[in-house]
Amino acid sequence: MQISLYRFDPDTDESPRMDSLELDLPEGRDLMVLDVLELLKAEDSSIAYRRSCREGVCGSDGINMNGRNGLACITPVSEAAPRGKLTLRPLPGLPVVRDLVVDMSQFYRQYEKIEPWLVNDTAPPARERLQSPEDREKLNGLYECILCACCSTACPSFWWNPDKFVGPAGLLQAYRFLADSRDTATAERLAALEDPFSVFRCRGIMNCVSVCPKGLNPTRAIGKIRTMLLSQGI
């Protein structure tokens, strides 16, 4: 198989390059892209990328495969490269540390900005706070985010304003707490999102929805936040 791999080491390279590599894939198994990376690394240990759980839940190995963001560990090679050539690049829009490793700090800062923790200003009961199955159901499609950054780094609005636009991942989590019947900070949360950038920089491009490896829908969550902001304004 033909592989084109993004390489960059800031200590030795003035600019990044794409290396052309050949790899004999074992017969009869549809490998994941991460398997391909591991095979390449066994040959050339200097190739750098993040990986851990290898089952799509830790969110380490978000990369760009043939132009599309996804998790290397749950993307079959046949799906990433239907025409046989696999092109692997780091997630776009974030500074590259080395090879496929990007500097995620801007992404994490946006996540922190929405204060992603439950706020409840009543004293906790001796047991759990009750929540109906219907109210709990509202968190599905939100809490499952793995912070892989595939969505935010596929978002043109985030590329333009990574310092001011919270981005799809952060906003999905903002809505996760707005939607939680146990959270009492709705007004404060909405007030923090009112400015022209935090939420309103979303242009409904929906790249986030099309790349999310967990099948989540940040655009819908952003729409719900906007509706809440509007109804609050009225």
Binding site: W117, L118, E128, R129, L130, S132, R136, F177, D180
Partner: peptide, 17 residues
């Protein structure tokens, strides 16, 4: 219970527990 108070989204029974 501490985890629940911190916000862990446990699945719930009909009675909300």
């Amino acid at each position: 219970y501490e985890l629940e108070h911190m916000g862990l989204p446990f699945t719930r029974t009909e009675s909300g527990r």
